[in-house]
Write a protein that binds this DNA or RNA. Sequence first.
DNA 1: AATTGGTTTAACCGTGTGGTTAATTTTTCG
DNA 2: CGAAAAATTAACCACACGGTTAAACCAATT
Lengths: 202, 202
Amino acid sequence: MESLKPSTETLILDAAQAVFLEKGLAGARMQEIADRAGINKALLHYYFRSKEKLSGIIISRAIGVIMPRMMGVLETDQDLFEKIRNVVNTFISFMSHNSYLPLFMVNEVNRNPQFFFTAAIQQEKPHLDKFCRQVDEAVAQGRIRPISSTQLLMNMMSMLVYPFLGKPIFRVALGLTEEAFQEEMERRRTDVADFIIKSIEA
Amino acid sequence: MESLKPSTETLILDAAQAVFLEKGLAGARMQEIADRAGINKALLHYYFRSKEKLSGIIISRAIGVIMPRMMGVLETDQDLFEKIRNVVNTFISFMSHNSYLPLFMVNEVNRNPQFFFTAAIQQEKPHLDKFCRQVDEAVAQGRIRPISSTQLLMNMMSMLVYPFLGKPIFRVALGLTEEAFQEEMERRRTDVADFIIKSIEA
DNA sequence: AATTGGTTTAACCGTGTGGTTAATTTTTCG
DNA sequence: CGAAAAATTAACCACACGGTTAAACCAATT
């Protein structure tokens, strides 16, 4: 039941992640990271020399957490429809527990595209090819209607990610309470997959 | 052919908009806004007392530009399918000329949800009701398959907005050149509407 | 020409920020 | 133990930032 006190390093990294994701890169303060980690600001620089170095590590970590998970699901040998259901479900589960991540990622990737590029390469180039080929084959075999695999992928990712980014807009525009919004998100676990499959089935 | 030199005020507002959208609220510097407007920093505060006031105006302006346009299309009396095609087309056109806007809006709305709330209310509450009712009726009449209008709206908005936010990710993940990406976005003008309609038609 | 009122500027101010230094405490280990 | 190494802190620094001040400029009016 008792938990070993975590190392200062992980204490810092966890605090840094929290602050960076909440406030954004430019809005995050080293002092706040130190405070939340319960340490001195100088110690922060002792472990991670600069804000830039620290944020770089956090970004890499974030990419490293989500990319393998997504790619893992996309590269299985499942049937296409089954795979789509699986991707949707996996993604919504993950995002529900990391709801700050999309905004942070999307920001960083737009302010500094090359960073994502190198970070992505570094941990094996994402293999979307397999998924795309699977779609193309299904089209060729007439199992689904003709559709560009690129467009399908864009559509799927959009419907998975955007609701987490636009949540405040949706809540205002649709007049949803926090609970009501959560319920809608739960429905999406099945509804988004249905929506996609209905659209592409022959 | 000759253009009257614009007033200092609009000079400032245009510069402010450019800087805020490029760098984000926290990343924007009053000095840079002044420089780009070709004026002194003190003059900036002479016209708009503080950074907060200035950013507030820019945000309101941004919301005021996009909301009426979207609502205008959503509130017409067109046939549902025709309206969907219209919304998709209008939105992609607009975003293509304001590609920095989504990231800025999504950021601001997440850091300060209540601001969007008041700003949206102020210029007439968005009337999504009409669109939602139209969907519900179409379902009731069996013209389209049973689907929640909320979910449909989320899906549509997601597929419209997210590609502009995730552009760098998509470009890397799919290995697209700038031109190739633009071509894909052009295809979306018709493809997204097709994708939606195929999914919901009875 | 002098007055007035709006506009613009150079110089400045207080503060918060990322980062450093030197000293102190804690740990490691012969 | 006691010395070397690592971890931690208080105090500090330079500078960039948002914001202010007081003086100068400029056009219009009398």
